[in-house]
Structure formats: structure tokens, C-alpha cells
């Protein structure tokens, strides 16, 4: 009953605080929408200046993949390259083709090289390989690819922040001490927080998942229910971790200081970036990061269409993190009251 009273109180406070509600529910949607527009699958289209290349060759370039500008003189083209109007200049030097790349953007440089390769090989290859996809399809954009990770990340990040700040505020305003001068158990305090916040995090997870799939049309191969489950588990981990760390913060500002320490490293190890080039023992760091498991499960569900059996390890690990952090929370409350 005390747990329920605490949960009801947290829910009431939440409903009164419109700004926090907006942060919890609208901020993730806003950022996801922006991400969607930035990474909506449009491939980079380089501007290539050509000088002295026969028009028979340039005509082979698909206008969808690059914009070709013909220059009478190489010097003039290089001038435009310097001015930022071009991404590359292709010319003939000593009878061989030569490319001068702008060079500050690796993805652009790769696109130009790929374009050149395709154009040159077009004559040689007579048999085109048949391309098919194990998962996903040819229309899969980068947003589709890392969207599942982002959905998990936003749930994690905003809940971590809110839980940390509200638990801290309970301590600094003296209400936690007052609370602990009643016969409530420390475990009931933690359970009440889990229950009260859990309701909002469940709503948040549902909203984010619905918005990404229905409104932004993110690629979705698996079950929505599993997405919700993983999102809920991730937010429970964020909730317990946030309240736990807030025991070691004195002010709201110190909660913010946990972000580069606790949140940012998790982003790097969450699968947003390919870790294969990383030192193998450094890669193992991802095993202690809750977001890694959440992101892994989200990708398995949304991209690979895996079912419960395929993601059960992630589920157990996330549950384990939540239980561990919750128990540590109960122990950390001993700092406030010894029994």
C-alpha cells in the first residue's frame, strides 16, 4: 500500500509538471523526426568537374548518381574545386585518367571513386551478379539501419535524466528525509519509484515506437510488442541507474555531469558505429553497457525480424541490470536512513 501511495504521488506530480511531460514525450519525437530528415536515404551526389574527358565516357554516367560539369581547361575546374563548387576534378594527365579530390569529406571521396569505378567497368562486365538481401532490402536507408538504436537510446536518455533529477530533488528538498521518518521500507521507496515512473516510461516507449513506425515509416520486420518490451526494459534500467547515480550527486548540475560519463560512452558502443575496427579487448567494454543489449535486441527485432527466442539473452541481461541497480538503490538509501 505504501508503494502504491508513493507511485500515485509521483504520477500526480508528473501530471502537474507540463514541461517535464513535454520533455519526456515530445523531445524524443522531435529529435527522431530531425534524424529522419537528415538520414532519409538520399545518397550523396558528388559534383564532378571533368576536363579533357571524351563526352562518350561522361555520357555513361548515370545523372542520378553525380552531376558532371565539363570544363574546357583543367585549371578552371581546379579553381572551382577550391571555391567549393566541386567535389572532384577528373582529367587526363600523361594519357592516364587522374582524379583530384576535395578531400575533407571521406564519404564524398568514396562516392567519387565508386562512380569512376562503375563508369570504367561498365564496358567490361557483361554478366551482372544477381543481388538479393538476407535482411532488409535495397531501399533500406541509414535511418532504417540505426533508427532502432536511436529509439532505444532516447527512451534510455530521457528517463535517466528525469529519474535522476526527481530523486535528487526529493533528497535536496528534504522530502526524502521526511519520507524516511515514516515506517516505509527502503525497498518500498525504490518499488514506488519504479511503479510511478514505470507507467510514464511505458507510455513514452509506446509513443516513440508508434511514431517511428507509423509516422516516420521506419523499416519494421518484427513484432511491435517485442519493441515495446525491449523499450520498457531499457527504460527500467535507465530509471534504476538514474536514481542510483543521483545518490552520488549533490545538485541537478552534477546529474548533467553524469551524461558524458555514463550516457555518451554507451552511445559509442550501442551499435551506431561499427566497432569491428576497434581493438578487440576494447570492444568487450560493450558487455557492461545496458544500451548495447537494448540496441542489439531492437535491431534484431526491427531489421532482422527475430522473435522472442532470438533476443532472449538481451532480455535476461537487461532484466539483470534493472534488478542489480534496484538492489543497489535500496542499499544506497542506507546513507539516508540506516534501517
Amino acid at each position: 500500500m505504501r508503494t502504491r501511495a508513493l507511485a500515485v504521488r509521483i504520477i500526480r506530480q508528473f501530471l502537474r509538471d507540463k514541461r517535464t511531460m513535454a520533455l519526456l514525450f515530445l523531445a524524443p519525437l522531435l529529435v527522431l523526426t530531425l534524424m529522419h530528415f537528415v538520414f532519409n536515404g538520399q545518397t550523396v551526389k558528388p559534383d564532378v568537374g571533368v576536363a579533357g574527358i571524351p563526352s562518350a565516357v561522361t555520357a555513361k554516367v548515370d545523372p542520378e548518381t553525380a552531376r558532371i560539369v565539363d570544363y574546357p581547361d583543367r585549371k578552371e575546374a581546379e579553381e572551382d574545386l577550391r571555391d567549393g563548387k566541386l567535389d572532384a576534378v577528373i582529367s587526363i594527365e600523361n594519357g592516364k585518367p587522374a582524379i583530384l579530390l576535395e578531400g575533407t569529406d571521406p564519404s564524398m571521396a568514396k562516392a567519387v571513386q565508386l562512380l569512376l569505378q562503375k563508369t570504367l567497368q561498365a564496358d567490361m562486365l557483361t554478366v551482372q551478379p544477381q543481388i538479393s538481401y538476407l535482411y532488409g532490402d535495397e531501399d533500406l536507408s541509414s535511418f532504417d539501419s540505426f533508427g532502432p538504436v536511436l529509439i532505444g537510446f532516447f527512451s534510455f536518455f530521457f528517463v535517466f535524466l528525469l529519474a535522476g533529477v526527481s530523486f535528487l530533488r526529493e533528497r535536496t528538498t528534504g522530502t526524502l528525509e521526511r519520507l524516511l521518518a515514516t515506517p516505509i521500507r527502503r525497498s518500498e521507496v525504490v518499488a514506488g519509484y519504479l511503479l510511478g515512473f514505470g507507467l510514464f516510461t511505458l507510455a513514452q516507449a509506446t509513443l516513440i515506437a508508434w511514431f517511428s513506425i507509423r509516422v516516420l515509416g521506419i523499416y519494421m520486420a518484427g513484432s511491435v510488442w517485442l519493441v515495446l518490451l525491449i523499450n520498457l526494459l531499457l527504460t527500467l534500467t535507465a530509471l534504476t541507474l538514474g536514481t542510483l547515480l543521483s545518490s552520488y550527486a549533490g545538485t541537478e548540475f552534477q546529474i548533467i555531469q553524469f551524461i558524458p560519463l555514463v550516457i555518451v560512452p554507451q552511445v559509442f558502443f550501442s551499435g551506431l558505429f561499427n566497432l569491428e575496427a576497434m581493438n578487440p579487448w576494447l570492444q568487450k567494454l560493450s558487455y557492461v553497457m545496458p544500451l548495447y543489449y537494448g540496441a542489439d535486441a531492437m535491431r534484431d527485432i526491427m531489421l532482422r525480424g527475430k522473435g522472442l527466442a532470438g533476443i532472449q539473452v538481451d532480455i535476461y541481461v537487461l532484466l539483470g541490470f534493472s534488478v542489480l541497480f534496484a538492489l543497489l538503490n535500496v542499499a544506497a538509501l542506507k546513507k539516508q536512513r540506516t534501517i
Binding site: R12, Q13, R16, D17, G174, T175, E177, R178
Partner: peptide, 10 residues
């Protein structure tokens, strides 16, 4: 308690 431990928004 010495400080008013109340929930201001309630």
C-alpha cells in the same frame, strides 16, 4: 522536520 518537507506542486 526543520525544513518544510512538502511536495510543492501537489
Amino acid at each position: 522536520a526543520q525544513s518544510d518537507a512538502l511536495y510543492q506542486e501537489l
